[in-house]
């Protein structure tokens, strides 16, 4: 994928390296422990997330899925008293590298939050926000970004006539799609989605799943979900967490059809959780 805007902080891709699944260890999580103050919530995690695939995190509530996801773009830095051990690398580059600027890391990673969080601005300004903070304000580029992002998020048809209206006038599902459009506006390489469909009706959910399928072409996607069917439908690989530990990780089909672990089997078949 060529992206003219990306002067990637990650290693330049080897010439001719084919994108899809060429890097099974695009994101590596190594011996990772994470603490909120004294409380440890992630234990000894080791997993590799492949390039341009969809990886789903599943597990019962409170098992640390969001925590792990939010560590991938260091969003947890905002919280006082956090601590980690081990490392996370993206494209071979540690995200905890002291010489790495968190901002440039986050510019490469889009994030959709568990609770939709549109800005108190117009729809248009919501989308172009990431461009504006990057100092890009060419009208044509912004317009093009808005249209492309909204189309990708399946929202364009619904809002194209009211781009200058407040984002707060949208419905809950529209807001969530707006947040997705905002997350992909600046063409990140990785897209983190924390239960993007928890507030949506089946139709909107379907649209977003379709969207995930399309985005896969371009992005590496990590999605947290409580919906087993959804995980089965959209993801290539699935990681099952329980009480902060990675219980099982593998091809989605294998995890769902043929889990090696008893807890996984119980969880995916809906017998616990």
């Amino acid at each position: 994928m060529s992206n003219p805007f990306q002067q990637s902080l990650f290693k330049p891709k080897a010439a001719g390296a084919e994108a899809s699944s060429s890097q099974p260890d695009f994101i590596r999580i190594l011996d990772y422990n994470f603490y909120y103050g004294e409380a440890q919530v992630l234990f000894d995690l080791n997993l590799d997330i492949p390039h341009q695939e969809v990886t789903a995190f599943i597990g019962p509530s409170g098992c640390g899925k969001s925590t792990l996801l939010r560590n991938l773009n260091r969003m947890n830095d905002l919280i006082d008293g956090i601590r980690h051990e081990g490392d996370i690398t993206i494209d071979g580059h540690s995200i905890y590298d002291p010489y790495l600027e968190v901002i440039s890391l986050r510019k490469r990673i889009g994030m959709v939050f568990q609770k939709s969080n549109p800005f108190p601005k117009s729809i248009y300004e919501n989308i172009v926000y990431s461009l504006r903070v990057a100092g890009r304000s060419k009208k044509s580029e912004l317009d093009e970004t808005v249209e492309r992002s909204l189309k990708s998020a399946a929202l364009w048809e619904e809002v194209k006539d009211r781009l200058q209206e407040s984002a707060f006038g949208l419905s809950g599902g529209q807001m969530q799609r707006l947040c997705i459009a905002r997350a992909i506006a600046n063409r990140p390489e990785i897209l983190l989605m924390d239960e993007p469909c928890s507030a949506l009706d089946p139709i909107a959910t379907g649209k977003i799943e379709e969207l995930i399928h399309q985005l896969k072409e371009e992005f590496t996607i990590v999605i947290v979900t409580h919906n087993m069917q959804q995980a089965a439908r959209v993801s290539d690989r699935t990681a099952f967490f329980y009480l902060g530990k990675l219980i099982e990780y593998g091809e989605t089909e294998q995890v769902f059809m043929n889990p090696t672990n008893k807890q996984t089997e119980a969880y995916v078949s809906g017998r616990f959780g």
Binding site: P120, S130, A183, N186
Partner: peptide, 24 residues
């Protein structure tokens, strides 16, 4: 959520304050 959203978009802390927090 608004602050986190802004930071996730690659905004610096001051940009977040200036563009979102203060107007709001």
């Amino acid at each position: 959520g608004v602050r986190e959203g802004s930071l996730a978009c690659g905004a610096s802390k001051w940009q977040t304050i200036q563009r979102l927090v203060l107007p709001a």
